[in-house]
Design a protein around this nucleic acid. Structure first.
Length: 708
RNA sequence: GCGCUCUUAGCUCAGUUGGUUAGAGCGUCCGCCUCACACGCGGAAGGUCGCAAGUUCGAAUCUUGCAGAGCGCACCA
């Protein structure tokens, strides 16, 4: 008979604050976060890539959920004997971080405009590194068993180099082009944005009807209309059959008479308004398309700051918001305003960071041709090479992939990876008379190296733009496994599970699939597990302005990390939003203490002898059931089942029974050990702490064999 | 406008391919400081599973319609 001497600390309630740091250190020192150090039984690799958190602030509740789920998966797989690798990272988060930093500058009474770009870059770099360090510690505090030795930052030199290389390759494969197209322009941030960086909402805007020569036209944007010289109607519109395509006529307009031309195009909706519209190709996507079809002129009306250009005559320099009512007033004075519909519902696009109304502009930018890439991604889903949890997200993924718009990857910000493109500015002037083959001089060169003009020896000027952050993070599973020649790439790529927030279904997931397929020919992962958003106790979105933000650190300090982890997981089904309530966390703190006391009692009793078969079998059935849940990503059920067993079966019934029938004592000791194993992925700290006491610090629960 | 999801006890949510008296946590009520634990123990109340119809031997679970909520997408000037 062995009786374990109780450590003094077991006489007090469980104190997570005292335990967690020490246990994490024990794990880190063991080296087992790095799968290369795991014992030989861990043969088959299993890989998860951590969605790199933005290194521009503290982790929020959503991050804790992501980290918790991924840690549960990793720990489970590790105990099951996999060579489990979870690769951490940090994201420079281009535009996001630049916006955060611009706000900081604003507070200090400074502005990015007018700053030396390199100086600005250095400042943001320093800011980001500090945050990155802070963030890593917060991830540690959550118990993450990720391999820090493999950590990557999205601005690491190799990442930058590989990103640029991909750009060059895609350019050579004709998947990237530079072109003038309608882009989403934020006049505040002075950059173009992709579709996913804008937010559309329905708003009520006055709709004006104006007299335009013999026609009546409608618009919500009178301030763009100065140069509208094309009047468009549907070719089949009988009301206007007397007007022929190409007819010209003079109209009295905002600043005097202009020559107008009739254009017949099917884009004009006969049902809408009067069926007639004028177009502003520079500031509207549809208008631009009409322009393309008929080879029309396009003129910029609004500058990059959102102010009117000289074409606006006396309105020049006015902010468009202020100009609108004045222009309407002018048209009214001239008798050209016919009526106003005050209740018109209109879709307005805004910058997702500052809510400034997006101004469509025409600009030379780099675009990725999405269609051929998206097609392959759809094939992967068709062939069941990629599975979504929950599975209805497959539909959403397909919808997006079937409706791609070419992706604008140029950003006019410094904080990002430079685009390896070079412009010959000014144009080539050959240095000798003999060089006359000017046509061969390329104005734009895409290359990782700085080119020099063969004809005039001039250095090319680098494109000052940087990449959209998703262009590099889309290649993340490749980069973190050292694509294309690294040892890890052979062992750990393709990875297994991509676990991330459901909000990234459009932003990140498709791009990883696309780049994975394009560069490696393989899907970057076979399973996509999407978690829901973490809301406040009443299911409302957390936001600073509402003041309902719950800081995970506050909760872990008060109740312990294990308690928070359980609260995040139990009953939380994939892609369903979670209402985070403090009392739930408190409940699991109580559970931690319960477990503590179970251990305390069990360890104080005799524990050697024969096991009771029926109880062992009952436990085995539970373990099997829980394992099935784990294998099927039903963590919300597995956690609840273990909880119920430990508290209401083991403690309430079996241990109580053992007080009357001491022959059960060895069995309770056995059951406790195995419960610790089942519970470890969910509550790693307390289970490891108890294990250390049980095993006299001779083994780590973290790498024990999962009971099945 | 299109799409997705949700509507189960006072609150927050489970209910894994339709199958016996629908579950959990918190909260409420009653009784207990029982020598592991009051961060605890024992017990109790509480739901016509949004509404309506259908399929079925049988539906919270499948189908349709309606109502309400949330989220996403959207170039009708």
């Amino acid at each position: 008979m062995i009786s374990i001497r109780m450590n003094d600390k077991f006489l007090k309630p469980y104190n997570p604050g005292e335990v967690e740091g020490r246990i994490y250190e024990l794990w880190e020192k063991s080296g087992y976060f790095n799968p290369d150090n795991l014992p030989p039984r861990h043969e088959k690799p299993f890989t998860i890539v951590m969605p790199p958190p933005n290194a521009n602030g503290d982790l929020h509740a959503g991050h804790s959920l992501v980290i918790t789920i991924e840690d549960i998966i990793t720990r489970f797989k590790r105990m099951r004997g996999y060579k489990a690798l979870w690769i951490p990272g940090a994201d420079h988060a281009g535009f996001e971080t630049q916006v955060v930093y611009e706000k900081k500058l604003e507070k200090e009474g400074r502005s990015r405009f007018g700053m030396d770009p390199q100086e600005l870059y250095k400042e943001i770099y320093k800011f980001t590194l500090e945050n990155k360090h802070n963030m890593e510690n917060q991830i540690r505090a959550l118990g993450a068993s990720c391999d820090w030795s493999r950590e990557k930052f999205t601005l690491d030199p190799d990442v930058v180099k590989k990103t640029q290389k991909t750009f060059v390759k895609m350019f050579e494969d004709s998947l990237i082009y530079r072109g003038k197209r309608t882009i989403n322009w934020c006049s505040k941030h002075q950059t173009s944005l992709s579709e996913v960086e804008t937010e559309s909402s329905e708003e009520i805007t006055p709709f004006y009807y104006f007299k335009y020569g013999p026609f009546e036209i409608g618009t919500v944007r009178p301030e763009t209309k100065f140069a509208d010289k094309y009047v468009v109607m549907h070719p089949d519109d009988a009301r206007y059959s007397q007007y022929k395509h190409g007819d010209t006529f003079e109209v009295e307009w905002i600043n005097g008479p202009i020559m107008a031309t009739v254009i017949k195009d099917e884009a004009a909706d006969m049902e809408f308004g009067t069926g007639v519209m004028t177009i502003t190709p520079w500031h509207s996507q549809i208008d631009y398309e009409i322009r393309e079809r008929h080879g029309l002129d396009a003129e910029q009306i609004i500058d990059w700051r959102g102010k009117l250009l000289p074409i606006a005559g006396e309105f020049v320099g006015m902010n468009i918001k202020d100009a609108r009512p004045k222009i309407v007033e002018r048209l009214k004075e001239k008798g050209l305003l016919l009526k106003v519909d005050e209740n018109y519902k209109n879709v307005v696009k805004r910058c997702y960071k500052c809510s400034t109304i997006i101004e469509p502009q025409i600009k030379d930018q780099w675009f990725v041709k999405m269609e051929p890439l998206a097609k392959k991604a759809i094939e992967s889903v068709d062939n069941k090479n990629i599975r979504f949890i929950p599975d209805n997200y497959e539909k959403i993924f397909r919808y997006w992939m079937n409706n791609t718009i070419d992706w604008n990857i140029s950003r006019q910000i410094v904080w990002g990876i430079p685009i390896p493109a070079w412009f010959h500015e000014p144009k080539c002037i050959p240095k000798t008379e003999r060089e006359k083959d000017m046509a061969k001089c390329k104005e734009i060169i895409v290359s990782e190296e700085e080119p020099i003009c063969k004809f005039c020896d001039a250095k090319y000027i680098r494109d000052p733009d940087t990449f959209d952050t998703w262009f590099s993070s889309g290649q993340w599973p490749l980069f973190v496994t050292d694509y294309p020649d690294g040892k890890d790439f052979k062992t750990y790529y393709p990875t297994d599970v991509m676990e991330t927030g459901q909000d990234l279904i459009f932003k990140w997931i498709p791009r990883m699939v696309i780049f994975g397929l394009y560069l490696s020919g393989k899907d970057p992962f076979h399973t996509i597990y999407l978690n829901g958003m973490v809301n406040d106790a009443h299911g409302k979105k957390m936001s600073k302005s509402k003041g309902n933000v719950i800081n995970p650190t506050t909760l872990t300090e008060k109740y312990g990390t294990d308690a928070l982890r359980m609260a995040l997981v139990v009953g939380n089904t994939p892609a369903t939003d979670l209402s985070l309530r403090e009392d739930k966390v408190k409940g699991y703190k109580n559970f931690a203490n319960k477990l503590w006391n179970i251990a305390r009692f069990t360890m104080s009793q005799h524990n050697e002898g024969e096991l009771k078969n029926s109880l062992v079998e009952e436990f085995n059935a539970l373990a099997k059931d829980v394992t099935t849940d784990m294998d099927n990503y039903r963590f919300y059920l597995a956690a609840e089942k273990i909880y119920a067993y430990i508290w209401h079966r083991l403690a309430d019934e079996i241990i109580e029974e053992s007080k009357k029938d001491s022959s059960i004592l060895p069995t309770t000791y056995y059951l406790l050990q195995n419960c610790l194993k089942l519970l470890h992925p969910f509550m790693p700290f307390i289970t490891e702490e108890i294990w250390q006491e049980l095993k006299n610090k001779e083994s780590l629960l973290m790498i024990e064999t999962w009971p099945t």
